[in-house]
Design a protein around this nucleic acid. Sequence first.
DNA 1: TCTGGGGTCCTAGGACCC
DNA 2: TCTGGGGTCCTAGGACCC
Length: 381
Amino acid sequence: MALLAEVSPLVEQVSIDEAYVDLAAGEHDLSVAGVTALAERIRASIAAATGGVTASVGVGTSKLVAKIGSDLHKPDGLTVAAPGQEQALLHPLPVTRLPGVGPATMERLRRGRVHTIGDLAGVALPELVDWLGQAHGTSLYRLARADDDRPIVGEREAKSVSAEETFDVDLTDRGRLNAELDLLAGRVGGRLRTGGLSARTITIKVRHYDFTTITRSATRAQPTDDPRTVAQLARRLLAEVDTSAGIRLLGVGASTLADFVQDDLFGDEPGDLFSAVAGAGDGAEDGHEATDPRPIVAPEYREPEPERGSGLEPRKGADWRPGQDVWHEQHGAGWVWGSGRGRVTVRFEGPNTPPGPVRDFAADDPELRAADPPDWRIPES
DNA sequence: TCTGGGGTCCTAGGACCC
DNA sequence: TCTGGGGTCCTAGGACCC
């Protein structure tokens, strides 16, 4: 990866041993001869740096062509697809070469007598959408035509964190299962903490003795990175699963991630919160600066009592009253329009902003805070 | 061909709101 | 009071990738 970073500032790492490099973002001769020489230099430098590890490279006008090209002459190969030659390269290949065509999709395509990428390019879009659904159908329709404008993205934020374990023997003992769950929850919580993340949704994964696999999840009002909280919720979820016939695998996952940690909110200098709010009013669209990952909250806001509940109990929600002033992390200042049945409707409106949209939230939406009346009310006339 | 341990994205249905 | 459309959030499962 370090070698690739020398080639271009824009590198997308796909896995430990695979990456896309945007050659156009570096200063390179992009002719066929130029990129061929460059690719050979990269392969040679990898071999030199690793004591002879081989690498395959594909060069093309899109991620699709580069990826398929790199697979073409696998252990130690180079493929360069000249601009204009993309379809000629793709069409003779089996559809399974396309990313997104696994066993299930291949079977559906086979029934439509599609075997090669060229066959796929002969199928009309509505037909493909009918077979594979909107997103998948449209995506394959385009890929078959080498129509691929997916950008190369450098850094990506994690969307979930999980840990799982397959047992040598199927487990039935509740105590043992709970202990394993605690272990997995500890790993997930630990990784959330090291990543400076917290999660609202906790999911357990249960594989039965016969390989059937189910998931159960619950979403909390507040994000957490506390292994004990994760474990507690995971246990409650597992309690509702029949484990008597034997469990082969257990997993714990965390998602709906927030890039901050609740506990740190009031940890240090008190002045920061006020400046954070001022920053929001100044139009810091981003919502969070890299230097201060904490959420923007109204100054009056105080952290609620730590939730003892599980998130499985019916949500009580906050007690909102019409006209009450609120602050929402995404939408800013507003006031309660109405509430009931676990929902609250807020009209967003501030001193310098005209009456904004009316939006609907869960009454316990973690991003919605009560705020003392700021000085923004339009004077009553 | 199967296993194992990470992930991502999509679909579909239900609850709820305006 | 009922119907319908648009929208969000949550849950569960499936397909796929490395």
